[in-house]
Nucleic acid binder design. Structure first.
Length: 709
DNA sequence: ACCCCTCGAGTTCT
DNA sequence: CTCGAGGGGT
């Protein structure tokens, strides 16, 4: 990368002679200067100074910070690693995660959703359930933090846990108040909402962009996103962005007891809210609302991709809680997907980390719902046969849920005369091993997926396992994404996960030379090493998830982390569990959510010496930390409890969620490790077993009294 | 022996 | 996001 004119700052005082005030001033200047060069280097690919000069700047910054540790700035270059510097925005951790919503497409889904709520809350079939209904704005979700009524911070959704700090840009949006007014404005509240661009403003902006020879945006959503993510706030200020407040994150004190009440308070405080929001009762009313909004979709003046329904009463919302990453008390009812026709050029076979062969349709690029689509999954062998999709076919493509493209069907009339049904390969395209469809033990039926039998021999599987290891919910190493992992694997630098953590040592020893790779300068290598070091301490559930054991995803990994508490103990127990008559195997199977298949998969993983070797080498490099106790002080924390019989005051899932929130381990079966059995009506064998083992048994009421609810 | 719900695995594009 | 399969209850 060519570095042209060098601009070494004028000679300055040696660090040890600096006065405090001078240091303060210089750190500020260095932060700005280094950020500037980072932008040029990473974003524009057009550095102004040499690597050596850049390093000199950073070294001076570090030296001054070392002498005046209390002067280290929040935006200090030494604190920024990898992506944060690369994209110019700092990161903000959401105090309460920004979740996604479950989706409904058909009317039945909505009816089911309402039914599910009634069932969960123990209401009768026709009972009244107030819900809010509002348009789902197609923009960007944002979290605005107001303290004492003043706008303090604004963050994008990001991965839901951590977003980008876009405070400076959000301050330029005139529809977002800098200050909330009203007697009931709380001391602290994260207001959540959607930033969007109206149709009229979008048209105006694009006309202006075109006239100026600038970039024309594909749709209002992209225009809004592009405007918000400007590094120069002045550009954001010039863009007409709108905002609707519809929810909240951390909010210790809410101004009302219903969803609609809180949103009404938002409006009183000066926040823009959507005037289309209504309170409805019952599935029919929701569907009527959906159809009415759908009919007016084009005249609303802004893009929407559906309607959102939320349970109105906040106490009921709380009772229902969450499933994985979405609330159980809300759902997005999406408008039907847009369709398009295109030619399927070829079918490519991809190999996943478990060896699954997945066919992907390579399409002639076509615009569907505002984005250009050129790939679509065909899922599996049977799916191809069912739809009789062949290379050369003209196919109908749609974006399901407006996101993932899928092939709806083939236009048979347009099929070339010489086409023949597609033959799914029986060997792995990556390693040539046999690819088979495993047979189910009991039914003898073939698995839907065809899998490469190569295991660790297969380069594709090895790379995929590495990608999984560094992925967002696993080790999440900044600057080491899918692409770089691939490059490092091919370069022979990283063969398996532990190699990641020995990379720096080997680089120093001259065994590998990352800086020789294209696109890897001295600075990016340094940042990568720093990012890797940051992950030497990692939560145990992430560690277990990262191993990539079959059938062990995020949730199961968390369950295992909770159950064993410590990586060494987990390793020991899983090896011991290979004895299917032993206690360790029993204990594993007793964990709620783990059955024979999952237990076997874990034991088989640890029966493979190569896998144990990976775990051991990893444990030499990283320290997995136990999960934070959820509520160390509750009377049931650390206790193993089993629910049995039919509960009256709580539903089963409520009871389980609540117990876990209080730090209890909920198990599915009674063993001598069980502390409490909560027996509802008609409890059967589990109650008997509890009596045999002398385990404490209590009624539902006693349990509720114990946890003090 | 079924049935329902939840979880895992794989995929797209910006 | 969707599909398939595992887990657990009836």
């Amino acid at each position: 990368m060519a570095r042209s004119s060098s601009e070494v700052p004028a000679a300055r005082l040696p660090v040890e002679k600096l006065e405090r005030a001078q240091a303060l001033e210089e750190l500020a200047r260095l932060a700005g200067e280094i950020a500037h060069h980072d932008t040029l280097y990473y974003q524009n690919d057009a550095p102004e100074i040499s690597d050596a000069d850049y390093d000199a700047l950073r070294r001076r910054n570090d030296a001054i910070e070392a002498r005046f540790p209390d002067l280290v700035r929040d935006d200090s270059p030494s604190r920024r690693v990898g992506a944060a510097a690369a994209d110019g925005f700092g990161k903000i951790r959401h105090r309460v995660a920004m979740l996604s919503l479950a989706n409904a497409f058909a009317d039945e889904d909505v009816a089911e959703f309402v039914q599910r709520i009634r069932r969960f809350l123990g209401l009768e079939a026709g009972a009244s359930v107030e819900m809010t209904a509002e348009p789902k704005i197609d923009g960007l979700s944002i979290s605005l933090r107001y303290e004492k009524g003043k706008l303090i911070e604004a963050a994008t959704r990001g991965d839901g846990t951590e977003g980008e700090n876009v405070t400076a840009n959000v301050r330029t949006i005139s529809s977002i108040p800098q200050r909330l007014v009203g007697a009931d404005v709380p001391a602290v509240i994260d207001v959540r909402g959607e930033i969007y661009m109206s149709h009229a403003d979008f048209a105006k902006l694009n006309a202006a962009q075109e006239a100026a020879g600038g970039k024309v945006f594909a749709n209002p959503r992209n225009a809004a996103a592009g405007s918000l993510r400007q590094l120069d706030s002045r550009i954001t200020a010039s863009r007409p962005l709108g905002f609707f407040a519809y929810g909240w994150g951390e909010a210790p004190k809410l101004p009302a007891e219903t969803q609609s009440g809180v949103v009404a308070a938002f409006a009183r405080w000066g926040l823009p809210t959507n005037s289309e929001m209504k309170v409805c009762d019952g599935a029919e009313a929701l569907l009527a609302y959906y159809r009415a909004i759908g009919a007016r979709r084009a005249t609303l003046g802004y893009d929407i991709d559906g309607v959102v329904y939320k349970l109105n009463r906040l106490d009921l919302q709380q009772r229902m809680g969450f499933v994985s990453r979405a609330p159980r008390w809300a759902i997005a009812h999406k408008f039907p997907a847009e369709k398009a026709m295109t030619v399927l050029r070829d079918i490519e076979i991809q190999v996943g980390r478990t060896g699954a062969l997945t066919p992907v349709a390579k399409l002639a690029p076509v615009t569907v719902g505002g984005v250009v689509v050129s790939n679509a999954t065909l899922h599996n062998e049977d799916e191809i046969r069912r739809k009789d999709v062949r290379p050369g076919d003209t196919v109908v493509v749609q974006r399901a849920g407006d996101v993932i493209p899928q092939i709806v069907g083939v236009v048979v009339e347009k099929r070339p005369l010489d086409s023949a049904p597609y033959q799914f390969p029986h060997v792995c395209p990556a390693c040539g091993s046999h690819a088979v469809r495993e047979l189910d033990e009991k039914s003898g039926e073939a698995d839907v997926v065809r899998r490469c039998t190569g295991g660790l021999i297969c380069p594709a599987q090895r790379v995929e396992r590495l990608k999984h290891f560094v992925s967002r919910n696993a080790f999440d190493i900044e600057g080491l994404g899918e692409k770089s992992v691939q490059v490092f694997y091919e370069g022979g630098f990283i063969q398996s996960p532990p190699d990641i953590f020995t990379l720096e040592a080997r680089d120093r020893a001259g065994e590998v030379a990352i800086a020789n790779l294209e696109g890897w300068g001295e600075q990016s290598v340094r940042k990568l090493f720093a990012a890797i070091d940051q992950r030497r301490r990692v939560a145990l559930d992430r560690f277990i998830f990262a191993l990539g054991i079959r059938h062990v995803g995020e949730t199961t990994a968390r369950v295992l982390a909770r159950a064993y508490g410590d990586a060494g103990e987990f390793r020991r127990a899983m090896i011991a569990a290979s004895d299917r008559d032993g206690e360790a195997w029993q204990e594993l199977n007793n964990i709620d959510g783990i059955g024979k298949v999952v237990a076997s998969a874990i034991v088989e993983f640890f029966a493979e010496p190569a896998n144990v070797d990976v775990v051991d080498k990893l444990l030499a490099e990283v320290s997995p930390e136990p999960l934070e106790a959820i509520a160390a002080t509750s009377p049931v924390s650390g206790k193993t409890v089993v629910f049995t019989g039919s509960l009256v005051r709580l539903t089963r899932s409520e009871a389980k969620a609540q117990a876990e929130r209080l730090g209890a381990k909920v198990s599915g079966s009674v063993s001598k490790k069980t502390d409490i059995v909560i027996a509802g009506a008609d409890a059967g064998s589990k109650l008997k077993k509890a009596a045999e083992l002398g385990v404490t048994v209590m009624s539902e009421d006693e349990w509720i009294a114990l946890i003090g609810d």
